[in-house]
Design a protein around this nucleic acid. Structure first.
Lengths: 210, 210
DNA sequence: TAGATTGTTAATCGATTAACAATC
DNA sequence: TAGATTGTTAATCGATTAACAATC
């Protein structure tokens, strides 16, 4: 329940986007079929693991040939929910928020940030990379009216819980959290944290013990 | 070898920074002792797991009392290598790079970004949050002279491998990579990726299958 | 003392890796 | 055909969870 989504391990979910990226590049290079061995080579991983991961998306390959590149891309994208053009709100147009608004990669991942919110009035009314910045007071109302499902939280830690509460109030069902805090949310709300300190901890531990 | 650092599982390493943050706040609130139950409650985790995680740092507690807050902080910080005041270079002063330069949290994590590098001459010579931006040509030389150990890569994917090569050339031993690519590096160089698409994939899969 | 908590060892669970038949 | 690759089942490995004695 906790560690598997749809019967698929979370580690697998985390590797799929990388495979997708590799296969997309191969497609752009004109390749029609790709084997797990090919993918494994590109991502410095193991062919057996790649095969297992890809198998969990349900795509069917051909022995001795591999997978149809276009079909593989379609299936993986669908599996990740990247075909749904997920619309998102972002709260906190600081340095990180701005960086996220300008991050082109998201368009490849089916994420469409449709509005941003701030308390700082000097930012309200402006546009960042084509996305309009609203006053935070509009959050719940707009979320409800636009049926937005994803909320991106890029505010200082002390405000994150309040923003989360208000997003949920507005009907948002998934939170992508860049603030270094643990949030309390209802069971039906999905939360995913991007904790830079966790990643940095792995790096510095390795560095200091090798 | 791959999955454990110093005999400690990577998942544990990723949870320790969170515990540290919680315990630091408790210290600032005047608490002298803390139990695993307390920490678990704060991070919505399990007391048994917290105990196991903390045990791997080697800190010793007192039955019925818990852990000395100051001692716990010291031990965990040491274990993560956050007491060494790790100096780092950052390459790529775009939106993300700028956000990272301004991210105050890093100072808590013993990370000190001492210089930034860019090819864009309009940025070279300026300072971002007190950190001077150098021309990329100075990278290897300065890294060598300053004995910098950590390199942060925040450039577009297509340039990441070149930057990595040059950092390694300059003697850098650990790479923190924000570009969505897989790098080829020698065995003695540590690499840690921050892959937003992996995190986003988990979020959207959950959202679309719940 | 009683009871909460640590420290440690064992049991369970799940992910990764290996093995192998089927196939084109 | 021969051999590379898939699909699937089994074996291994490691992390999490549980159990329990020791302790203050």
């Amino acid at each position: 329940m906790k560690s598997k989504i749809n019967g698929v391990p979370v580690p697998t979910l985390k590797r799929l986007p990388l495979y997708l990226k590799i296969v997309k590049r191969m497609k752009s290079e004109g390749k029609a079929f790709v084997s797990c061995t090919d993918i494994a080579q590109e991502c410095g991983s193991d062919a057996i693991q790649v095969r297992k991961d890809i198998a969990s998306t349900g795509v069917v390959g051909q022995a001795r040939v591999g997978f149809n590149v276009s079909q593989l891309i379609d299936t993986v994208e669908n599996f990740l929910g990247w075909r749904n053009k997920n619309e998102a709100f972002l709260v906190g147009v600081g340095n990180l928020g701005t960086a996220l608004l300008k991050y082109r990669q998201f368009k490849e991942n089916g994420l469409n940030i449709v509005a941003a919110f701030e308390t700082d009035n000097s930012k309200v009314g402006k546009k960042v990379d084509g996305v309009k910045v609203f006053n935070l007071t509009k959050l719940e109302n707009l979320a409800e009216r636009m049926h937005v499902q994803i909320g991106i939280i890029a505010v200082p830690g002390e405000y994150a819980q309040e923003i989360a509460d208000r997003m949920i109030q507005g009907g948002i069902k998934a939170l992508w959290v860049f603030s270094p805090v643990v949030l309390k949310v209802p069971d039906d709300v999905v939360v995913e944290y991007v904790l830079l300190s966790a990643s940095l901890g792995v790096l510095t531990s390795k560095l200091n013990n090798q």
